[in-house]
Simulated scan of single mutants.
Amino acid sequence: MQSKLLRFLFLAVTLFSAVVTSGARNKYLFVYFTGNDPHQEQISYAVSDDGFNYTPLNGGKPVVASDSIARTGCVRDPHILRTKNGEYLMVVTDMRSSLGWASNRGIVLLKSRDLIHWQHHTVHFPEKYAGKNFANVTRVWAPQTIYDEKAGKYMVYFSLLTNDGTIPYDRVYWAYANADFSDLEGEPQVLFDFHAPAIDTDIVQDKDGEYHLFFKTEQEGAHKGIRQYVFRDLHDTASWTLLDGFCEQTKDNVEGAGVFPLIGGGWCLMYDCYMSGHYQFTRSEDLRTFRWVADTKTTGAFTPRHGTVIQITPKELKRLKKAFR
């Protein structure tokens, strides 16, 4: 009798633990901006249980005021990353689109310990690179960050265009961030040259150590879609392989590829179908083939434009909901 009771108690505790563990699973945080008007070129948050369906925080209103962090008073294309020591890094395009698509001159670097309060520093290329061709940028678009294991540093990458002919089309460059993520070190270096305009680059590394780089082709008059390189060395482009075809599961022009791992396995590739008024979410098990999951209309409180997603813990979600009811 005692043996049966012990077995029953063991099973009850096991089942209770499983329920608690299941209920404590990580969630997803989507960081994005919402449109092309100055009041929409701000940083917003949305959260999700499954990575495909999101609920905006703060009623869809901004959680970081752009006029408090950016020279232009507006930002676009936020990319968020969790660091190895548990902090958060964000990089954004410092741009007010109403001034024109070749009007931005730099980026903003942000760092936080709690996803609520952010330290910020602007990198204004005409000042930082005075006397060099990088001072002549007309676009510093869609910056993102990845940790370079070999260098032991965080690498920021972005597309550049200049008005002096030295960078005649949007080409992707990189530079290391300094130790406190307040500036870039040295001069930007070419990450890759597609020999045609390329923007909106996103890099992830799979469990086998292979990198997957997604970018948007921007040739005039051609389909504007997402292509992919695969490689094992961030800086040895001779070893990179460009995969055939486009990744998006639509015939629409798209931009703002964002790739993130799904809880339980697999990956999500999402992108902005900017001409059709919706965001599209796809799923992949191998980061090479993708299947459609959902189209999210950019209407109402949730109107995402180019953004990125990270996983967050239940504790982090609780803190965000308390801060942004």
Rank of each mutant, 00 (worst) to 15 (best):
H195Q: 05
D114M: 13
L320F: 08
T14A: 15
S48M: 06
G100Y: 07
W141G: 14
M90R: 08
K111V: 08
D208S: 12
I310V: 15
H235C: 01
P56T: 03
R76W: 14
L109M: 13
A70G: 11
T296A: 09
R232N: 04
Q189D: 00
K216F: 12
H120V: 03
V140I: 12
S97F: 13
H117T: 10
G264A: 07
R283C: 01
L115N: 06
H195I: 00
L269E: 04
F260L: 07
K207E: 14
F194R: 09
D37H: 11
M270V: 00
L243P: 03
P314N: 10
Q40S: 04
D236R: 08
G186D: 10
V108N: 10
G152L: 06
K61W: 02
G209I: 10
T250R: 12
W101R: 02
C273E: 13
F125G: 05
F302L: 15
V137P: 00
G266K: 05
W174H: 14
D114S: 13
E316W: 12
R288V: 05
I203S: 04
V75G: 08
F194T: 00
Y211G: 01
E185Q: 02
D37V: 07
N178F: 09
T14H: 04
N133C: 05
K84A: 06
